[in-house]
Nucleic acid binder design. Structure first.
Lengths: 172, 172
DNA sequence: TCAATCCGATTGCATTTTGCAATCAGTTGC
DNA sequence: GCAACTGATTGCAAAATGCAATCGGATTGA
């Protein structure tokens, strides 16, 4: 990892981590899309990341301590990427960024419903989501009662409801 | 302004605004450093931005609606840059970014004291700061009682106290 | 008056980063 | 055996960045 920094300012250092057009997109897809494999990130990305950029950013995010990589026991060539605690604690920042974008930028309705729910849920919902991510990626024990729908499931259901409603409105 | 977007996702759109190494640095210096002129931003920047990059980013931030530019009545050549409401509402994101960076990145003590105070102050302090910025940049009426120290003054005083303490410790 | 300084930029140029398409060698399922 | 899929790598053109020098106009100080 490169240890030369422009300054010791927290905002500058954060920007040295995320100050590009792809790193946060990859983390978004892992956090909200549940993606763990190279191909899932490559083909599932709405924005169409190139494979060389994806490989470079995954390597860089590992060097920075935001991701780890492990072998997939089911496939000798597959790698599973996991979020570290450092990356999981970005959830509140993602929520704020989404909320800000929803107010000021030309977001699409179906893609902003998740941001809306996250905003309305506030810190308690973010904490629940972070616990779920710790379970998925770090093997931490689950804290929510069994049977509780996961935050990602709730967000996904809301997204699909909007898509279905818009499809119905279009055919009606 | 370019209206082609990679996707309508709020996080992606936010990244299209801030996904570079300088835009947020400029906004940070305007918000926390109170800088309004080209030269102040050019020479005051800890990270050493180049003048052509600064000119390009100021133009871009104006196109995006985050800044406005006006003539300085005291100097026919000077331009005054002002934050818009869109930029002022970034304060909570700045606070979160600073808090995250303080935990996970090699920040310097004197440059992270502001982030620490902003974090401890929480949303009420952010709101007070945003009101002050609305007064400075948008001409909005002040809401705090007269005589109350401004948030920027509080942050600056804390910064200087750390610098003074470290200087004393170094000579002792 | 007049030179020095400051103002917001602009220019030229070398380096670095990015985006895109094609390709790679090993693994898997059939 | 063989096509499809795995995580990447390579080559190359285009764009962004970094740096130093410079611009014409405005202001300042002697």
């Amino acid at each position: 990892m490169n240890t030369e920094h422009r300054s010791g300012c927290p905002i500058n250092l954060s920007l040295e981590v995320f100050g590009d057009r792809w790193s946060l997109i990859i983390l978004r897809d892992m956090i909200f899309g549940g993606r763990r494999h190279f191909r899932e990130l490559l083909n599932g990305s709405l924005e169409g990341i190139a494979s060389n950029i994806l490989a470079d950013r995954l390597r860089r995010l590992m060097e920075l301590g935001l991701l780890t990589k492990a072998d997939d026991p089911s496939h000798k060539q597959k790698a599973i990427y996991s979020l570290t605690e450092m990356a999981i604690t970005l959830v509140p920042i993602m929520a704020h960024l989404g909320a800000w974008g929803r107010v000021w930028l030309p977001v699409s309705e179906e893609l902003s419903i998740r941001a809306e729910l996250l905003e309305k849920g506030g810190p308690p919902l973010w904490e629940q989501f972070m616990d779920e991510l710790r379970h998925e990626h770090l093997g931490a024990p689950v804290k929510t009662p069994p049977g509780t729908p996961t935050v990602r499931q709730q967000l996904q259901a809301a997204y699909e409801a909007v898509v279905a409603r818009k499809a119905e409105a279009a055919t009606a």
